[in-house]
């Protein structure tokens, strides 16, 4: 916690842990702010990357079409206020780091899948079954993202797979920095596959590139078939949509065709695989999809 203003609540710390191992180091998230004119940072590892490092200029943007023209006029009168052009993408820091992650994964020939869904869609069960079926065929590692608890990492660890749990505290998504730190703690093997199970949330994770090769959105038949148009950004960014819990279809009103139709309205490139992680139905298609990457 910041001892000047007390700004960081303990619940908002980001932690990286392996179940069974004592967590000696806790790395907090990038957190920089000012008190008066001094800046201080609360992070152990602090990487600063700027897309336009060194690029800034002082020209007054007379050509810019905006509504506060009085400032431009004042510029002519040598007013102290002056305008600087920034024109930096807000996501540039995350995106740069994501590209670095992507380069690292490519160099190691690691297939990386970002699995995203709302809570309770069966991501972890799907992952457990996937790992069991890949056993002996493909080396697997897992990054588990949740706000709190190591429960999911413990489940994955029981399958004998290398796993690291990222607890985001109050954070609603994983970002490239977290994946960068977590993957450094994993001994990723050449030619393996890394599953990143994002925080259960159908909104926020869609905006954050982690450096993955493919984005997979998972929905289950117990959710409404209109999820793709209720949360379109997630489906727009996905490569594959897995529709899980097909074993429950006889008991539900879920309209499979309508669901796919909605999803294709948002993203006409989207692929679909129907599975029941519980019964194993459809798992072959999913494993084949991974193999084809």
């Amino acid at each position: 916690m910041c001892d000047t203003c007390g700004c960081e609540a303990t619940g908002n710390k980001i932690t990286y842990s392996v179940p069974g191992e004592e967590n000696k180091h806790q790395h907090s998230h990038v957190h920089e702010h000012n008190h008066g004119n001094t800046t201080h940072s609360h992070e152990h590892v602090h990487t600063h990357e700027h897309a336009n490092e060194g690029y800034h200029h002082h020209e007054h943007l007379h050509e810019v079409n905006h509504s506060h023209s009085q400032y431009n006029q004042e510029d002519h009168g040598h007013h102290h206020e002056h305008k600087i052009a920034v024109e930096v993408d807000i996501m540039s820091k995350n995106n740069l780091l994501a590209e670095r992650n992507r380069g690292y994964f490519e160099a190691k020939n690691v297939k990386v899948l970002n699995l995203m869904s709302s809570p309770g869609s069966g991501k972890t069960t799907l992952l457990e079954k996937t790992i069991q079926q890949l056993n002996g065929k493909l080396e697997v590692a897992v990054i588990e993202g949740d706000q709190q608890t190591q429960n999911d990492a413990e489940r994955i660890q029981k399958t004998g797979t290398q796993v690291i749990q990222v607890n985001t505290g109050n954070g609603c998504h994983l970002d490239a920095d977290m994946v960068n730190k977590a993957s450094k703690k994993l001994a990723l093997k050449e030619g393996s596959v890394l599953f990143i199970e994002n925080v259960g949330n159908l909104v926020c994770p869609s905006l954050f590139d982690l450096g993955e090769q493919k984005r997979v959105v998972i929905i289950s038949t117990t959710e409404g078939e209109d999820k793709p148009i209720k949360y379109p950004t997630m489906f727009e960014h996905a490569h594959l949509c897995i529709i899980n819990k097909t074993d429950l279809l006889p008991y539900l009103d879920f309209d499979m065709e309508a669901c796919k139709k909605y999803a294709l309205q948002v993203n006409h490139h989207l692929e679909f695989i129907e599975v029941s992680a519980k019964t194993g139905e459809g798992m072959d298609a999913w494993l084949q999809w991974i193999n084809n990457l």
Binding site: E32, H56, K93
Partner: peptide
């Protein structure tokens, strides 16, 4: 609420440029 981390990035970028300009 990813807007919070977006806002943090915005402030970080703005601060960086503002400090360079003193």
């Amino acid at each position: 609420m990813h807007e919070m981390s977006i806002a943090q990035s915005i402030v970080e970028i703005a601060m960086d440029y503002a400090q360079k300009e003193k």
